[in-house]
């Protein structure tokens, strides 16, 4: 009689991790973003992308504009996606600390990753963690890091172990570039349009 067992590192059982990539234009007027979800082997599961423009930036505080645009953009990505990530990761130099602490309430652990050369400012609501054996040392978690032994922690450890904490952001950037490649080939008409419900 076969003995039932469960492989604790079963990729499918660990679930997907979501990588939020946000890019904004130099003048802060245009934002585009992607939610790239992968499994524990780095295999892509879903790629969701969108973009928006914030007109007349001069009349608003830059920080407010950025915060608002990020919230609208990332909300649209989260609303569009079908896979449910077990972890949500973004880069600290792309996404402000208020997104997960004040503007969006996440049901899954979300972290902003500080790249190795720059430490990320952390607010009181965020809990810091330094991963010993991974390249990016700083993760700022909301509401808190995955507990030891949990499935989410195993997923995080696997991503960290196999160099998949920062690399997926590169692929997301490539995907965004490709999705909006026509921007560089033809001028986009920037006129007032009624917002679309996504």
């Amino acid at each position: 009689m076969p003995v039932p067992f469960q492989n604790v590192d079963d990729i499918e059982e660990l679930g997907p991790a979501g990588f939020l990539k946000v890019e904004r234009s130099a003048d802060g007027a245009m934002y585009r973003g992607a939610l790239f979800q992968i499994n524990g082997r780095g295999e892509p599961l879903e790629f969701t992308y969108n973009r928006l423009e914030v007109p007349r930036p001069l009349f608003w505080r830059r920080t407010d504009l950025r915060r608002h645009a990020e919230r609208r953009l990332i909300s649209s990505l989260l609303a569009m996606c079908k896979c449910e990530p077990r972890l949500l990761l973004c880069l600290a130099d792309e996404v402000g600390s208020a997104l997960f602490s004040q503007d969006l309430r996440m049901a899954v652990p979300a972290a902003r990753i500080g790249r190795p050369v720059s430490a990320a400012a952390r607010i009181n609501e965020e809990t810091g963690e330094i991963l010993e054996e991974s390249e990016p040392p700083n993760l700022s978690w909301i509401p808190g890091p995955p507990p030891e032994g949990s499935r989410d922690r195993r997923l995080l450890d696997r991503l960290s172990r196999y160099g998949l904490l920062l690399e997926p952001f590169d692929r997301a950037a490539i995907g965004l570039r490709e999705a909006y490649a026509s921007d560089s080939r033809k001028a986009t008409s920037v006129s007032s349009r009624s917002p679309r419900t996504v």
């Binding site: 969701t48 973009r51 423009e53 407010d64 915060r67 569009m80 349009r193 996504v198």
Partner: peptide
């Protein structure tokens, strides 16, 4: 920011999309 304070945004014409594998 309250809704009345929020700056307007334009959802630029497509593509916006989702690729599922």
């Amino acid at each position: 920011l309250s809704a009345s304070d929020e700056p307007p945004v334009d959802w630029l014409g497509g593509p916006a999309g989702r690729l599922e594998l």
